[in-house]
Design a protein around this nucleic acid. Structure first.
Length: 581
RNA sequence: GGAUCGGUAGUUCAGUUGGUUAGAACGCUGCCCUGUCACGGCAGAGGUCGCGGGUUCGAGUCCCGUCCGGUCCGCCA
């Protein structure tokens, strides 16, 4: 038996008079006395069926309901009223025979693009949600990105090599998911946070160019763009310097943009140092689709008797073009916005550079016209511009202004979903200080190579914060989509790095002895990068959350609400795994 | 660990200062309809207002606790 001769998305005017068999899901039923229209859906599209009881009394569509799976035989005929919104809108099927392959109870939400279902119910019935064409397109885009990645990397002689999921728990970084070992009492595997050490060992083994589109696991709290299990495009290369890596992988992203979105990204990918990004954008992943850079105006505004400024460590401005018409109400609303706990600023100072050249500020009591002009000049504002100013502790103020910059751009429509701007952020610090734990952590990871000229600073704690690494992030529209580094490949430097991070020699040997050992047998210089595959797919599909590009995602609490996982295990399992209940 | 918003019909939501029998839309059921594609018309069914406690003559509404979900901070080498 042949279930179908065609899909629901392919029949056109040229097929008129053909006899066909279609199978799919009932999307909607529209009954008009003795004739009934049924929209039949599969992943390829929708085809309208015509059930005409005047032709045959068996063609009564009354038994059908939404989401029934049916098979129909019939003839392709021309529609009297065409529907130009459907690819199959010029034709319909005059049904001669139909079979209900499987009935459906009434679905809890309607299976249409603009569904009435909320997140919760859609996740519980994810298999129904996945029938919706909007989600199906995301999943198809994900596959397209996967294919484009494999194609590019294969053409550049990368090998896809699988690495194990049951590995060893390591210190630092994210929390590990842990798996108890039945055969090795009181011992545990960990699921990999990334295949980092394995790919480095593959370089030692001479595989030269490796990649994997691979699941990684981190037991940390979730966000809209963070899942406990997520997918990376994980890559590593031998005998490369930083420039080689940047070239190779901006090529990859350009290839993906071309293949998946048909975008010719001809211009070179912009580059800036981490320090430059922090100073001019207030964060390490600037959105460069628009300007509105942060301007440090601390020197310009202090000493004028305005306590808010005089007491601040750092005062920063952004210039919002053509917004002097902002009303008091809008300014008050922005002020409330920066006062929200997530931003946590005390207030917002404003200077309006009016079209007539007159400057007005929210702190006119302390500043005369000329002093306001100095602020305008320092921040490169001209007539018609609105200057927004935040002040306070440097780190917090930079971060808050970075958020305000994005918020203003969103309000002004400057963050267009169909515009893609790539950026390399370079020269990240090697180390960062964790106030809470009072220790230095690796900014990227402990295998990242410091810049050679900074290696000697690893002997001086006071210079730790100044050590830069050969580490780089790729940023797309203000999202970190990938990050990597040139790695340490000498045993002594790696040991020094572990020591810097506070590991004793014994701990380093216990946790990473295999890697230190490998470095003694002729490890080649190497480096690599890993891209957040889910995040990349979310951006390319215009999705707000990576959940929209993952077939079976977890919710905010790390739960799979469809499976109801995680769940309790039975007593027998506790016993076998040598766990106490 | 913390902040914040939400939980009312199958679904998405409204519900005023605490006050009669808790509403709308979509969906669902039945009937009518030969050209719809957001079909239309008529009729109807459908509710433990997340859960527990309290205040009150009276609680969907106020208070306390708790569970669930969204977003964010911390965290995410």
């Amino acid at each position: 038996m042949t279930y179908r001769t065609h899909t629901c998305g392919e029949l056109q005017a040229k097929d008129i008079t053909k006899s066909v068999t279609l199978a799919g899901w009932v999307q909607t039923i529209r009954k008009f006395g003795s004739i009934t229209f049924v929209d039949l859906r599969d992943r390829y599209g929708i085809t309208q069926l015509l059930f005409n009881e005047a032709l045959n009394t068996r063609l009564d569509a009354t038994p059908l309901g939404r989401e029934f799976v049916i098979q129909v035989e019939g003839k392709v005929i021309e529609r009297s009223n065409k529907n130009l919104q459907l690819s199959t809108g010029e034709i319909e099927i005059e049904v001669s025979n139909f079979t209900i392959l499987n009935a459906s109870i009434v679905p809890p939400f309607t299976i249409v693009d603009d569904t009435d279902g909320g997140d919760d119910i859609r996740m519980k019935y994810r298999y129904l949600d996945l029938r919706r064409s909007a989600i199906q397109q995301n999943i198809q885009l994900r596959y397209a990105v996967n294919r484009a990645t494999r194609e590019y990397l294969h053409n550049n002689h990368f090998l896809d090599i699988e690495t194990p999921f049951l590995i060893k728990s390591t210190p630092e970084g994210a929390r590990d998911f842990v798996v108890p070992s039945r055969m090795n009492e009181q011992e545990f595997y960990a699921l990999p946070q990334s295949p980092q050490t394995f790919k480095q060992l593959l370089m030692v083994s001479g595989f030269d160019r490796y990649y994997q589109i691979v699941k990684c696991f981190r037991d940390e709290d979730l966000r809209a763009d963070r899942q406990p299990e997520f997918t990376q495009i994980d890559c590593e290369m031998s005998f490369v310097n930083q420039e080689n890596v940047l070239q190779m992988f901006e090529g990859l992203v350009k290839h993906i943009l071309k293949t998946v979105k048909n975008i010719d990204y001809a211009q070179p990918v912009e580059r800036m140092t981490w320090e430059h990004a922090m100073e001019h954008y207030g964060n390490d992943k600037p959105d460069i689709r628009f300007d509105m850079k942060l301007k440090n105006i601390t020197q310009t505004v202090q000493g004028k008797g305005f306590k808010v400024f005089d007491d601040a460590e750092y005062i920063v401005a952004i210039v919002v073009k053509n917004c002097t018409d902002y009303t008091r109400k809008q300014i008050d609303e922005l002020t409330d916005w920066v006062k929200r706990p997530q931003i946590g600023m005390g207030g917002l100072a404003v200077v309006k550079y009016q079209a007539d050249g007159i400057l007005k500020s929210s702190f006119d009591k302390f500043f005369n016209e000329e002093q306001l002009k100095q602020i305008a000049d320092t921040s490169h504002a001209t007539a018609n511009d609105l200057i927004l100013i935040l002040s306070g502790n440097k780190t917090k103020t930079q971060k808050a202004m970075s958020e305000l910059r994005l918020e203003m751009a969103s309000r002004l429509g400057l963050r267009k979903a169909d515009e893609f701007k790539l950026l390399w952020v370079l020269d990240f610090p090697l180390l960062e200080y964790n106030e809470e734990e009072q220790i230095w952590h690796a900014c990227h990871h402990p295998f990242t190579s410091p810049k050679p000229e900074h290696i000697e600073w690893m002997n001086d704690k006071n210079k730790f914060k100044d050590i830069k690494a050969n580490a780089y992030d790729m940023v797309l529209n203000g999202n970190e989509i990938g990050g990597g580094s040139i790695r340490i490949f000498q045993r002594d430097l790696q040991e020094k790095m572990f020591a810097t991070l506070g590991l004793t020699k014994e701990e380093a040997q216990e946790k990473f002895g295999f890697l230190l050992g490998a470095f003694e047998y002729g490890a080649p210089p190497h480096g690599g990068i890993a891209f957040g595959f889910d995040r990349l797919c979310a951006i390319l599909s215009g999705s707000e959350s990576i959940r929209d590009v993952i077939a079976f995602p977890k919710n905010n609490s790390g739960r799979d609400v469809m499976l109801n996982a995680p769940s309790a295990i039975d007593d027998k399992q506790y016993k076998e795994l040598h766990l106490k209940k």
